[in-house]
C-alpha cells in the first residue's frame, strides 16, 4: 500500500521563528507529540518534539544519567523555560528530519519508523512541502 492511501492530511506545523512558548501551547492544544517545522514555502526543515523541548530544559548530563532522580525539583526547569520561552523553534528542532513521499510504500515507512525509533513521519511532495504525516497508529490500523 502507498503512503498516499493512508496518510493523515493534517498540515499542523510551526514556522522556524515560532517562539518556543507558542510551540508548547500548540503541542498541548493540538494533542500532537511533535510538529513539523516549515519554511516560507511550506517545505519541511525540521521537527520539534516534546522530547526536544525537555532536552533543552534539563542539564546536559541528565541525558547521560537517563534519570530525573538527580533533579532536586522542577524549579530549575521552570527557570530555564522562562529564559528560552521566546527563542525560535529552529534553535531546538531536530534538523536531520526524516520524511517520506506519497508514493512510498507502507513497508518502507514501517522500516524507517522501526530503524529510527520514530512515532511520526512528515509526508512531503516533490518540492519538499508538507502534505501530511504518517503516524505509527496509521500504519497499524491499515495492516
Amino acid at each position: 500500500m502507498k503512503v498516499r492511501e493512508f496518510l493523515r492530511r493534517d498540515l499542523t506545523s510551526v514556522d522556524r521563528d515560532t517562539p518556543l512558548v507558542q510551540v508548547i501551547r500548540l503541542l498541548e492544544q493540538s494533542g500532537h507529540a511533535s510538529l513539523p517545522v516549515v519554511d516560507e514555502e511550506g517545505r519541511v526543515v525540521g521537527v520539534i518534539s516534546e522530547r526536544d523541548i525537555i532536552r533543552a530544559l534539563v542539564p546536559g548530563y541528565m541525558d547521560l544519567l537517563r534519570s530525573a532522580s538527580f533533579l532536586p525539583s522542577l524549579n530549575q526547569m521552570a527557570r530555564r523555560l522562562e529564559e528560552i520561552a521566546h527563542l525560535p523553534a529552529e534553535q531546538f528542532m531536530a534538523k536531520d528530519v526524516v520524511t517520506c513521499k506519497p508514493e512510498d510504500t507502507d513497508l518502507y515507512v514501517a522500516d524507517l519508523m522501526l530503524r529510527r525509533g520514530l512515532k511520526q513521519i512528515p509526508v512531503v511532495d516533490a518540492q519538499g512541502r508538507l502534505i501530511g504525516v504518517v503516524r505509527r497508529i496509521d500504519l497499524l490500523s491499515h495492516l
Binding site: R9, D10, L11, T12, R25, L26, Q29, S30, I131, G132
Partner: peptide, 8 residues
C-alpha cells in the same frame, strides 16, 4: 479526505 491546516 480534506487536508486540514488549522490554528489551534
Amino acid at each position: 479526505g480534506v487536508s486540514a491546516n488549522f490554528v489551534w
